[in-house]
Write a protein that binds this DNA or RNA. Structure first.
Lengths: 215, 215
DNA sequence: AGAGGAGCTGACGGAGTGTCAGGTTAGGTT
DNA sequence: AACCTAACCTGACACTCCGTCAGCTCCTCT
């Protein structure tokens, strides 16, 4: 069902082909985290991989296409983000722990994949549906769970009726993503990395439950 | 003090020069909102402006340089965002109105300038100090005011001591920016534009005051 | 009118893109 | 071993865009 890896011209990639393809992806990833997206050239990636541009075009239609591949890989890994929210209770002390874990997990995931995520964010903002879908895939993992949690609290009457759980969840997740993408920015506010986390957790807790946490 | 506009090779730009320069900026802006940043070429901008690439290079070092110019212009206009927060009280009904106005103003500003802001965001995330500074300039306008408001509440004992006002303010502003940049994304959650605003206002209010709003 | 600087662009070398034809390599078949 | 085939790679090429410079035109002031 996974379908074999295929070259642009339809050939089936064998062992050797897969290897060079992978190497190209690795070099692209490296390239993305060291130079601005706009300046990433096929020829540079090929050079770094010790091969020729023509080989690159055998496996990917263009740089963007290769980035999509990279992003897809990451999105698969990102599915595990669900675990950060699934099956958590949002009452009392466990709620605070839930918020903390969510912030922590999310931030470290974003940090680890910041280079590709930057590009995905850009593509999505530019209206490219392929990037947009990948971004959704990652965020959905968290947002859906969070939405359900809020809905549950709402049904119990612990959250106002006029609140839209999806809107709140989506906004909180967007916040986490944005803060993660611009972590360095906070340093110039005099806010340190370690200080940031509990404050984010507070906002998440407030957003989900509508109340201050009991630490 | 503003210093005259100069060409790349140091000439002082006169009336005619200013005009073509401006036209180039306008066309670039148009270009940015119709095609992905990576695909914006000097030659296209020049063509659209009815001039030659060589002319473009007379006024800007490259596409990035021109985008910076555009961003700087926008940042000046963005200084007015301070008005959304300055001199507001964060207690009772006025607080809710303040939150609503902030969200409204912020979102519409972002919408209006989304194309350039996308690029600024990218540049900042990539660690380019010039873009980073511009982004700060815009966000500072709001964040600083918000930080002060939270500090004030904290001094009055209405906000917990362990809270870091700058971290909260920064996170809230980052949230607004992120949501604004991906407004379309929320539609796929089944969240409509009009529905989004009050929920964002709620989150802002919760973040600043730590309490639910009294509408 | 003409001097001089502002303004524009054709032309060009250099670099990246994307394609194709043709050569090389790996693995299976007889 | 000899052969075949499909996978794999790349040199070469036409094309596009970049970035620069010399030289032309236009405007303005005297």
């Amino acid at each position: 069902m996974t379908g074999q890896v295929r070259t642009v011209d339809g050939r089936v990639a064998g062992r050797r082909g897969q290897a060079t393809r992978q190497k190209l992806l690795e070099c692209l990833s490296e390239m993305l985290s060291t130079s601005p997206y706009r300046d990433v050239k096929v020829i540079d990636v090929a050079r770094m991989a010790g091969t020729s541009p023509a080989t690159f075009y055998q496996y990917f239609p263009d740089v963007e296409g290769a980035v999509l591949e990279l992003a897809e890989e990451m999105a698969k890994e990102g599915a595990t983000l669900t675990d950060l929210v699934a099956g958590r209770t949002w009452a009392g002390k466990p709620a605070w722990a839930a918020a903390e874990d969510l912030v922590d997990g999310f931030l470290s995931f974003w940090r680890k994949n910041d280079a590709i995520l930057r590009v995905v964010d850009l593509g999505a903002a530019e209206g490219d549906k392929r990037f947009y879908k990948i971004r959704m895939k990652i965020l959905n993992a968290v947002t859906n769970s969070l939405t359900d949690s809020i809905k549950e609290l709402q049904d119990k009457g612990r959250v106002d009726k006029w609140v839209n759980p999806a809107a709140i969840a989506g906004s909180l997740v967007a916040m986490l993503a944005a803060v993660a993408a611009h972590q360095k920015g906070f340093q110039s506010w005099g806010v340190k990395q370690a200080e940031l986390k509990p404050n984010l957790a507070l906002l998440v807790h407030l957003g989900v439950t509508g109340k201050k946490p009991t630490k």
